[in-house]
């Protein structure tokens, strides 16, 4: 059987690694993480498809690389809870709440620059002071960057942990962006169907 040829987007895992490295040099690069939220939503809303997950997601490629090619994964079945709709949507809500909190923090810093903290919060609990990647920008811009970098690093850590114990791409099962875009696609398909029904009724 012929081997599948790689496309340019099969190398986007490099971008994922680059993202974390760039963030170590200057925290403002963390803003690039917005791409990982905006692009999947764009595809879901415009086409009603999970094009980002299916083709461009660098994180899933990285998990695949670590788990399959570097054989770091035990490739066990993930617990049933993880793939339940309840858990997936609960995690989405939790994740979005945490994201909103970092926007609130950013707003507070925007109003009063004295509250600016050069801290990375891992797993929403452990605060690690990070000062070497701060080179003086507008405080609120940096504060949001710290928040987003924390979120990206935290989710990657979670992804790597589940990659090791279960199948390589287990992160995809509870990935908040994946859950959200799938939800949007389902809503879109439902709408199209009702529009179709509506259009056809006119001919009855």
């Amino acid at each position: 059987m012929k081997k599948k040829k790689n496309s340019w987007y099969d190398y986007l895992w490099i971008a994922t690694i680059l993202y974390f490295i760039l963030g170590l040099f200057n925290v403002v690069f963390a803003w690039l993480g917005m791409i990982c939220m905006a692009v999947p939503l764009y595809f879901a809303i415009k086409d009603g498809k999970k094009t980002y997950c299916n083709k461009y997601c660098g994180r899933s490629q990285l998990m695949d690389l670590l788990g399959n090619r570097l054989k770091l994964s035990k490739r066990k079945e993930c617990p049933a809870v993880l793939k339940s709709t309840t858990f997936r949507y609960a995690f989405l809500i939790f994740f979005m709440t945490m994201f909103s909190m970092s926007i609130v923090t950013t707003y507070v810093v925007y109003k009063d620059a004295a509250t600016f903290r050069q801290v990375i919060t891992l797993l929403w609990t452990f605060k690690v002071p990070f000062t070497f990647n701060y080179h003086g920008t507008i405080p609120w811009v940096s504060q949001f960057a710290y928040g987003l970098y924390s979120l990206m690093l935290t989710s990657t850590i979670l992804g790597i942990i589940t990659m090791v114990f279960f199948k390589p791409r287990t992160w995809c099962v509870y990935c908040p962006i994946g859950t959200m875009t799938q939800g949007i696609c389902k809503l879109k398909a439902m709408n199209l169907k009702s529009e179709y029904d509506h259009d056809n009724k006119a001919f009855d």
Binding site: K49, K50, N54, S60, Q182, C185, A189
Partner: peptide, 24 residues
């Protein structure tokens, strides 16, 4: 019902027999 439509199956299928239907 439980598919998360991540596309991992599409990527490995040697016959291109799988598609993610409308992202669902």
């Amino acid at each position: 019902k439980q598919c998360v439509s991540c596309g991992a199956c599409v990527k490995v299928c040697p016959r291109d027999a799988i598609e993610i239907y409308k992202g669902m």
